[in-house]
Amino acid sequence: MKILIVEDEPSLSELIEREVRSEGYVTECARDYITAETKIVGYNYDCILLDISLPGGSGLELLSKLREMGRRENVIIISARDSVDDRVAGLELGADDYLPKPFHMTELIARIRSVLRRGRTGGSLTIDIGNVSLDPSSRRVNIGDRSIELLKKEFDILLYFMQRPDHLVDKVVLAEAVWGDYADESDNFQFVYAQIKNLRRKLEAAGADIEIRSIYGFGYKLTLKAE
């Protein structure tokens, strides 16, 4: 799997490269429009991470160039220009996903996996870890071949963890990710503990081979159960 990273900010580019490589992908980097164009014209990639504002041109132009050439590369736009117009323009030009900066690397990796899988399976977007399979669009969770019922917040929490397996998630981060703006001024996280407790109970009861482990006092991690 070869991934082209088109990003002009050196530090961010380096981080993305390191992260993507650690996932076992092969990477190439382009820091400006001309380099990116040359690479796109000359080689094939499985996925292109595309920044919109680039020295020498716009990522959107690259995108339309790709489409003109009839190429079917998966493209994830990563842009700091978090405006609805950009998002719409990008997706209309055939980008597969849009990730506004600033983003978490785990988020990016999850998106890359997702678009690559979609490319292979032709549309299914499920996230699978162990015997747990989660479909974000239909909001269904299967454990083995049994479907389990989760409440809205429980589902959101599980989705967040499944996008970040083996990754430490701070309870505050989790609260903000699931409850959004409501949680950012809270100083009591009882509501998070309660939801996690229920979710754990449901996973356990359904015989899932993943678990949400508490890490010290402040975080959680989704891991495969040790045999």
């Binding site: 900010e9 530090s11 961010l12 981080l15 390191r18 992260e19 650690s22 700091a80 900066k101 600033p102 983003f103 978490h104 690397m105 785990t106 083996d166 990754h167 430490l168």
Partner: peptide
């Protein structure tokens, strides 16, 4: 935005790796 994201991701990297 970008430098903030970079710091965040570096911290994350330390935590995870």
């Amino acid at each position: 935005q970008t430098p903030l994201a970079v710091i965040g991701n570096r911290v994350e990297h330390i935590i995870d790796h």
